[in-house]
């Protein structure tokens, strides 16, 4: 059985926090650059120019791309043949977040209690952590720092199976229209379909971790992604909601088998500053 020190995990998470906050990945930047060429509105072109300049500047200066450095969402795949020593996994992950948000001068945005005591925890912990036990002896950690502007515009609906494909399209499109400029378009639209209420929400978030623009391997869902992207970009919402051709950069759908009575659909939006980093230990 392979062994890994918990301190090693904390170090890795600290680095991931900094990398994600400062350096937008190449796939997202390339996608933005490609879609910018298709924008027709004057404001839209101007905004695309500012967005690209911002990406470049943040990377060169090693400062946060966006001041909302988000809630930290971690997707952690733990190999079943791996043993973690020196401390518990959750503690080690949060320790990495704590250090990353301090050393990187990143904004701390987490309230200790959602209702009765909305006091800032001061170190951006706790992270929202999704663990999965997988085959092998490796540890994969992926970080998705998620800003409030886009997260607040998420939606979920338990559709009836009879509402089918049209019901899904209408719900996703209406969610994007209602969100307008708030989630900082051009956005990435994560859609989770099937499973249960919680599973659909999880899948919608997980969909945002897929490399931008890669289609769902199932051609039916890949076609639906294309169709939704076209419909969303026909709304006119445009960059920052000020009008234009490009409202979304991609639609990513993840699905899961579901109950005979159900058709859950969740929509999780990500802003153009779609920060993501991962590491395999």
């Amino acid at each position: 059985m392979r062994e890994i020190q918990s301190s090693h995990i904390s170090d890795a998470v600290e680095r991931l926090c900094l990398k994600a906050a400062f350096d937008l990945g190449d796939p997202v930047e390339e996608r933005i650059r490609a879609f910018a060429k298709r924008e027709e509105s004057e404001f839209g072109k101007y905004i695309f120019g500012q967005i690209l300049e911002n990406i470049d500047y943040a990377r060169n200066e090693q400062i946060a791309i966006c001041q909302d450095t988000g809630s930290v969402i971690l997707f952690v795949d733990v190999g079943q043949d791996l043993h973690i020593s020196g401390g518990d996994l959750i503690g080690a992950l949060n320790e990495g977040v704590r250090r990353g948000y301090m050393s990187g001068y990143l904004r701390k945005s987490i309230c200790s209690d959602p209702v009765f005591d909305r006091k800032n925890t001061g170190d951006n912990t706790p992270a929202v952590i999704h663990t999965e036990i997988v085959a092998g002896d490796r540890l994969k950690i992926a970080i998705l720092p998620k800003g409030g502007g886009s997260e607040n515009m998420g939606t979920l609906k338990m559709l009836l199976p009879s509402q089918g494909l049209n019901g899904i399209k209408e719900f996703v499109l209406q969610s994007v229209i209602d969100a307008g400029g708030n989630p900082c378009p051009p956005i990435i639209v994560g859609v989770g379909i099937g499973g249960s209420m919680d599973k659909a929400a999880y899948l919608a978030k997980k969909a945002l971790t897929r490399e931008i623009g890669l289609p769902n391997p199932n051609p039916d869902y890949a076609n639906l992604e294309d169709e939704l992207l076209e419909a969303i970009n026909a709304t006119g919402i445009g960059p920052q909601g000020l009008g234009g051709r490009i409202t979304a950069l991609a639609v990513h759908i993840e699905y899961f088998p579901t109950h005979i009575t159900q058709l859950p659909v969740a929509v999780n939006l990500n802003c153009h500053a779609a920060r993501y980093a991962e590491i395999l230990l």
Binding site: A58, I63, I65, Q240
Partner: peptide, 12 residues
């Protein structure tokens, strides 16, 4: 309207 998500460049 300022440009959401362009916080680094704005800080300049």
């Amino acid at each position: 309207a300022a440009i959401g998500g362009a916080g680094a460049a704005i800080s300049r």
